[in-house]
C-alpha cells in the first residue's frame, strides 16, 4: 500500500457514512436483562478463534487474550441511584454483567493511529485487523476506550502441546508474537456466508440467521443478537429500531425506561454493538 493511498483512505475514513451505500453492516445487540454472566460465550470464542490460554503467570501480568470477556460490576452508575436497595451489607440486587468485545466502532479511535494501516474499516462495517501488516506498535490498544485489543507478547502457538493443536480452526490464522488481535465478529464465518451466497449468484445480501457468531450461537438465554444492520428485516435492525437506537448519534433520545444504549457513545466512536439495560424488579 502506497503512502498516498493510505493517506487517502484515512481521510475518507473520517468522512461520515463513507460506506453508507454498502449493502452490509454487521451489528449486534446484547440484552443485559437476559445475560446471566455464565461465560459460555467466552469459551465459545476461545474455541472458534484459536485463542490461547496463557497460564497463570501471564494472566497476572495482564496478558490474558480473551477477545470476549464478561465485565462484572457491583454498583449502579450514579444516574440510577433511585434503583439502589436500602442500605445493606450484601449486594442484594446481584451483579452487573456485560459481555465486552470489540465494539466495531464506526469512528474507531484505533484506526487512525496505526502507522501501517494494519487496522482499518472494511466495507461491511468491521474494524478489521491485518495480522501480517501489524508491526506491534500497540498504539491501537492504547487508544481503544474499551480495552478490547490484545497483544501477542509471546508465540503462544509454539507452546501448544500435541495433540491440542488439532483443535485449531483452520479458517483463521494462529497469531504470532508481536501482533495485535481482537474480536472480528467471527469474520471467517461471515466470509463463508457471503461466499455461500456468491455461489448462488447473490451478492451483497446474507439472509438473516444464515450466519451466527460463536458467542451468539452458544448463549443459553439468547441475549446476543447478530446480523446485518442494513437489512431492515433482520432481527438486529429490528432490535435497534425497537429500542430507538440510531447510528450517527453520540447520545440516544429516550423516553423514560427505554433500554437501548451503546457503551461510551458520548465519545462519538459510533459502536456497532447496542446494549439493552439490565432490569431489576425494584418491588422485590
Amino acid at each position: 500500500m502506497s503512502l498516498s493511498r493510505m493517506l487517502e483512505n484515512w481521510s475518507r475514513l473520517n468522512q461520515r457514512d463513507y460506506y453508507k451505500d454498502e449493502p452490509i453492516m454487521w451489528g449486534m445487540s446484547i440484552d443485559l436483562n437476559k445475560c446471566t454472566g455464565c461465560a459460555s460465550c467466552v469459551t465459545a470464542c476461545y474455541a472458534e478463534n484459536n485463542i490461547p490460554a496463557v497460564g497463570k503467570e501471564k494472566c497476572a501480568t495482564g496478558h490474558t487474550m480473551h477477545w470476549l470477556r464478561i465485565e462484572r460490576y457491583w454498583d449502579l452508575p450514579e444516574s440510577e441511584a433511585d434503583l439502589a436497595v436500602e442500605e445493606s451489607e450484601y449486594p442484594e440486587r446481584g451483579a452487573h454483567f456485560a459481555p465486552m468485545m470489540c465494539q466495531q466502532c464506526n469512528h474507531a479511535p484505533c484506526e487512525p493511529v496505526c502507522p501501517v494501516a494494519a487496522t482499518y474499516h472494511n466495507p461491511d462495517g468491521l474494524n478489521a485487523q491485518v495480522y501480517n501488516r501489524c508491526i506491534g506498535s500497540r498504539y491501537c490498544g492504547t487508544n481503544c476506550p474499551f480495552k478490547v485489543r490484545y497483544f501477542n507478547f509471546f508465540d503462544y502457538s509454539e507452546d501448544i502441546p500435541h495433540p491440542m493443536e488439532m483443535l485449531l480452526n483452520p479458517d483463521l490464522t494462529v497469531r504470532s508474537k508481536g501482533v495485535m488481535e481482537k474480536c472480528t465478529f467471527c469474520v471467517q464465518r461471515l466470509r463463508n456466508a457471503k461466499g455461500d451466497q456468491a455461489d448462488k449468484g447473490i451478492r451483497g445480501h446474507v439472509e438473516d440467521g444464515a450466519v451466527q457468531t460463536a458467542c451468539q450461537q452458544s448463549c443459553p438465554t439468547e441475549a446476543i443478537v447478530f446480523g446485518n444492520l442494513k437489512d431492515s428485516e433482520s432481527k438486529v435492525s429490528k432490535a435497534w429500531e425497537d429500542h430507538n437506537v440510531e447510528l450517527n448519534r453520540h447520545e440516544q433520545f429516550h423516553e423514560e425506561g427505554e433500554r437501548g444504549y451503546r457503551v461510551f457513545e458520548e465519545l462519538n466512536v459510533e459502536p456497532s454493538v447496542m446494549y439493552l439495560d439490565r432490569v431489576r424488579d425494584t418491588n422485590a
Partner: peptide, 20 residues
Amino acid sequence: TSQKGREIVKSVSAKDFDHN
C-alpha cells in the same frame, strides 16, 4: 468492581420494562 459512575451497565426497573 465499581463502574465509578460511568454508564457501562445501566439498569431500569421491571415496572418500566413491562410498561415499555
